[in-house]
Amino acid sequence: MDDFSSDSDCTKYWIDWFLGAQGNEFFCEIDDEFLNDRFNMTGLNSEVQYYQYAMDLIMDTFERECDDPTREQIERSARHLYGLIHARYILTQRGLQKMLDKYKKGDFGVCPRVHCQRQPVLPIGLSDVPHSAPVKMFCMKCEDVYNPPSVRFASIDGAYFGTSFPFLLFQAYPHLIPNKTSPERFVPAIFGFKIHEHARLARWQESKRLELNKRLEQYEEEERRRKRAQ
């Protein structure tokens, strides 16, 4: 990441500066309302050093004079704190809405898998505990997790997005779930002939898919019967 000294740009709001920084494209803006509610910050003061100062910095009310190393430490804390609040915020209704807008704009990139046909992806964390793994991308079409294409996202903690966010988003907006009824798949071939073990695996996976479809039909049948009984 590049220049982190927000001191030079006092006219700008801290959050605006943070969102504009390179590598922070995945973040959305957190409402002041959410930030002002102390209930939303429960437990974060033990996680972040200089919690109060960092909070002040995010809210642009930090006016204390301090030496450069401390200042830098507070800056780092503020970035960390913003990320952790962000993970909580995007699970709220307004946060989901904001992330949905970004998703629709394609801010998070597209799935690298060829047969997903450039399906937009969502950021996901592999753990809710900070400093365990960088952010990954989740594709709803193939339901798999990918490494972000650019190295600049490697320094972003996955905990800033959380493990639950993509699934909550699709639970809240089920009409966005891509159609998966006729999935394509790739089977390698040599001179047009499919390779035996690949084709065999594909057949096995196809049988798994049909099993799943059968189960899903069964669930629907159960549901219908239950409704009739009521």
Partner: peptide, 21 residues
């Protein structure tokens, strides 16, 4: 898929459909 630590059920509309792949 995990939602708040719980596996997302197959019965859900947003549940797993592509695990076979």
């Amino acid at each position: 898929m995990h939602l708040f630590g719980f596996k997302v059920s197959e019965r859900a509309r947003s549940g797993p459909r592509m695990r076979w792949l």
